[in-house]
């Protein structure tokens, strides 16, 4: 539970860090070719992927594992909409 809360907290924090107002008028080029805001958002994207990896690895909801155990033979007929 603690791991799950930490990961969700990290993903929410990332959302707030998306607004990089401190770089909005920084024209410098990181590594000589990447505009600063673009370099930041590349790093931010990698951090987002890391956050999702942590969730998949440490906090995957157990009910979906159960759902996978259902065999295709037990599937209902197509189009379950009821009137």
């Amino acid at each position: 539970m603690r791991k799950k809360s930490l990961i969700i907290g990290f993903l929410i924090l990332l959302f707030f860090l998306h607004q990089d107002f401190w770089l909005k008028d920084n024209p410098s080029l990181v590594f000589g070719f990447l505009p600063a805001t673009l370099a930041y958002h590349m790093f931010w994207t990698v951090a987002a992927a890391f956050g999702w990896w942590c969730l998949v690895r440490f906090a995957w909801p157990p009910e979906f594992e159960e759902s996978d155990s259902a065999t295709s033979a037990s599937l209902p007929k197509e189009g379950g909409a009821e009137e």
């Binding site: 998306h18 805001t37 930041y40 958002h41 994207t45 987002a48």
Partner: peptide
């Protein structure tokens, strides 16, 4: 453009 739509989409 990358930040406003692409990186936001990553999350």
């Amino acid at each position: 453009t990358y930040g406003k739509i692409a990186s936001a989409s990553a999350l």
